[in-house]
Nucleic acid binder design. Structure first.
Length: 560
DNA sequence: GCCGTTTTCGGCCCGACTGTTTTCAGTCG
């Protein structure tokens, strides 16, 4: 079992205990252990072999026993017993915004409902409002929540699908007889939510290759198998499709399968592109060249003007991950991050950065260990010491300061002015109306110490729609106050989205591709943020943290 | 269930809002 699978079981145990009204501190213990295991740098199996599971903070004798059982038998008796009381389907109900454990317990105990389909029917039949303690508003919340989930039904985040696709691609590439293998489709275009994993492989003997491909260890079921196709389901219920082509057809097919339907249609209708009838072509660039077009990056192949731009030779030179010189939104163990500042800094250097901003939460976010004035000053002293010992890398003193309900900030200016960089974010009052929310953010931007607005809309993919804001007004204020908008790279956020990125670039508003990392692994998530930037046609010069340290710090001081 | 340089028992992080009610439990970050 992987760390994440173990973490999921511990989290599910916490969910059931919570529904059973068990000791809240016990629930918290499981929850905390789940979080620690999820963010762990080392594979649990290795720690187990070294008999070091007990060294994990928050893992005592009880949880340690469960982890050991899961690692050795893939099962856990205690968990099975709990599942007998509340079946796994009830976890799906917890995904509904505004519906928590107590409500799910009432619904399951009274109506026996353990899946979203039956819950929707009960809500439509007005059965929810009849339950004790629940009313028409909860019924409405349920209907709206299910509606939101259904809109993205069956879609996975890029953060889940892309690594799975890449693993599968590596496997296919390693097979005898496979000359080339590529991830294609919407994953290659880096859409934030994707419905399946598409892979293209070049081989001569289709039958033998299919035979080998279907032995991939993460395939759960094969649903369809024919000459040049293999289709089915991977772990995590990810749909996959493997398309087999002759090597000479590989690049035309790669172009054909990567582009959105609209992009393909334009190529076919306006340029006569036919992936089945073409001269010998040895790269995607040659495929486009054959249509008298320059190479169009996969992220742009959505028919949102890229073909016209290509025709006029005016495609943007898109920003790349390697252009990023530093990360401007990272949490340490001073608030809710898992790692020490020194470890974050060392890891950032390995990633090739020349600076990193430590931006822990501010005091009002007490649940996340938000820093008060004294702790912030103590942290600054630690950072000063670390900076004193190295010349080629800089740790910037920052804060992710809460934007309060009225748009004021969670710290006074006399504290903010002592810091190098301020990311201002909303973590409360999501339900303000569009005008109030917009005015609130603009007021925050007008504070001269604020450099970046963090995760502007607060959306969580597949979980929560963003709050309403007037994007054009925000962009105007951002331009006027020289405040950057963050592209939050967490795969569950990817906020702002590509549409706002494109408008920001048009308005001259700078972007900051930040990880919002809470552990070392998450620092690498900037690749997802960079993908959003590219889908929004952003160039290197549009992105604040592509500047080198000297220019970047100069830019910061200009703002004040 | 976890933890401990005051502790092996008795703490463990909280504050605001919302919905269902008429004073408080549930949800969220």
């Amino acid at each position: 079992m992987t760390n994440r699978e173990v973490a999921a079981v511990l989290d599910n145990i916490a969910d059931i205990l919570q529904m059973k009204n068990d000791n809240p501190f016990k629930v918290r213990a499981y929850r905390k252990a789940a979080g620690t295991v999820y963010h762990l740098e080392v594979d649990l199996n290795i720690l187990h072999r070294q008999q070091r599971l007990g060294e994990i903070p928050g893992v005592g004798t009880g949880v340690k026993g469960i982890i050991e059982e899961l690692l050795t038998t893939e099962e856990c008796h205690y968990y099975s017993e709990l599942l007998a009381e509340y079946p796994p389907g009830v976890f799906d109900l917890l995904a509904l915004p505004g519906i928590g454990h107590a409500t799910v317990k009432i619904i399951y105990d009274q109506l026996g409902i353990d899946n979203l389909h039956d819950l929707l029917q009960a809500a439509l039949d007005k059965k929810i409002r009849a339950l004790p303690g629940l009313g028409a508003k909860t019924e409405y919340t349920i209907k709206k929540g299910i509606e939101m989930l259904q809109k993205n039904a069956g879609k996975s985040t890029l953060g889940l699908a892309l690594p799975m696709a890449e693993l599968f691609r590596e496997y296919l590439q390693s097979l005898d007889g496979v000359e080339m293998a590529a991830v294609t489709g919407s994953i290659r275009r880096c859409k934030p939510l994707v419905s399946d994993i598409d892979l293209l492989i070049a081989a001569r003997d289709f039958e033998a290759t299919r035979e080998r491909a279907r032995n991939y260890r993460y395939i759960k079921t094969v649903k369809l198998e024919e000459n040049d196709h293999l289709q089915g389901l991977l772990d995590y219920n990810l749909e996959f499709e493997v398309i087999l082509v002759k090597p000479e057809d590989f690049y035309p097919r790669l172009v054909w399968t990567t582009g959105s339907k609209a992009h393909r249609q334009v190529l076919a209708q306006a340029f006569g592109f036919d992936p089945d009838h073409h001269p010998a072509l040895h790269s995607e660039a040659e495929v486009y060249q054959n249509m008298n077009l320059p190479f169009i990056p996969p992220e742009l192949r959505e028919n949102t003007g890229e073909v016209e731009a290509a025709t006029q030779n005016s495609l943007p030179v898109l920003v790349e991950v390697k252009d990023i010189q530093g990360d401007l939104h990272v949490h340490s163990d001073w608030s809710d991050g898992a790692c020490k500042i020194v470890d974050i800094a060392n890891h950032a250097r390995k990633l090739g950065y020349s600076y990193i901003a430590i931006t822990d939460h501010s005091q009002s976010l007490s649940i996340s260990g938000g820093l008060n004035r004294e702790r912030l000053q103590a942290q600054a002293r630690v950072i000063d010491e670390l900076n004193a010992s190295c010349k080629d890398f800089r740790i910037l003193k920052g804060i992710e300061v809460d934007i309060l309900r009225d748009g004021s900030l969670d710290f006074e200016d006399d504290i903010l002015k002592e810091l190098d960089i301020i990311v201002a974010s909303i973590h409360s009052h999501f339900k303000l109306n569009r005008d109030e929310q917009t005015a609130r953010i603009i007021r925050a931007m007008e504070n001269k110490y604020v450099n970046i607005i963090g995760h502007l809309t607060g959306r969580l993919l597949n979980r929560r729609s963003g709050y309403e804001v007037d994007v054009e007004k925000i962009l105007a204020a951002a331009a006027q106050n020289n405040v950057a908008l963050e592209i939050n790279s967490h795969p569950d956020r990817l906020d702002v989205d590509e549409n706002i990125v494109r408008r920001a670039c048009a308005c001259g508003v700078k972007l900051a591709i930040n990880s919002d990392a809470h552990d070392l692994n998450e620092l690498a998530n900037v690749s997802y943020g960079a993908a959003v930037a590219r889908r929004g046609w952003a160039q290197k010069s549009d992105v604040l943290n592509t500047m080198d340290l000297k220019n970047f710090t100069q830019n910061l001081s200009n703002r004040r």
